[in-house]
Computed example of a mutant assay.
Amino acid sequence: MKPIKLPKEQREAMLDHIQSYFELERGESIGRLAADSLLDFFMNELGPAVYNQALNDCRTLTAQRMQGLEEDIYALEWRVSRK
């Protein structure tokens, strides 16, 4: 499985958020390199679990939609009268 890559703009925004979090919540300043290392760590450790959960959510949603589609198809059937 290939690693999860973020677009540059999104990655930069995440790094800004990490640095802000440390400043506001912990009263610590961390540099860009430290924030980048932390982001890589969490992407590698948490990324696959979050990705898999998103796939599970997608499967559930797809199953629900397919059930609704199946009901719609049955509703289109013509009733055949027996004489």
Rank of each mutant, 00 (worst) to 15 (best):
F22P: 04
L38V: 14
F22A: 03
E71I: 07
A54E: 09
G47H: 03
R11P: 00
G68L: 05
G27Q: 08
K5A: 07
L46S: 13
E77T: 07
K5R: 06
K8W: 00
L69H: 15
C58G: 09
K2R: 07
E70F: 15
R11W: 03
L55T: 06
K8I: 01
P48V: 02
S81G: 14
G27L: 05
S37F: 09
Q19T: 01
C58S: 15
F41N: 14
L6F: 10
K2Q: 05
T62N: 14
A54Y: 09
S29N: 13
T62Y: 14
R11V: 03
N56M: 07
K83Q: 11
G68V: 06
P48T: 01
E71K: 07
R11Y: 06
P48Y: 04
L46K: 10
K2E: 06
L39W: 05
M43D: 00
I4C: 09
Y51A: 03
T62S: 13
G31S: 15
S29R: 15
R59E: 11
F42S: 12
Q19G: 00
L6I: 02
R59Q: 08
S20A: 10
A54G: 13
I30A: 05
A13K: 14
R26N: 03
C58L: 13
F41Y: 13
I30P: 06
A54S: 10
S20Y: 08
E12I: 06
Y21Q: 01
A34Q: 06
P3L: 07
Q10H: 09
I30E: 00
L24T: 06
D57A: 10
R82P: 05
P3N: 10
Q53M: 07
A34G: 04
Q10F: 06
I73R: 04
I73H: 02
H17W: 08
N44I: 00
V80L: 11
L33G: 12
S81Q: 11
L39M: 10
Q67P: 01
G31L: 04
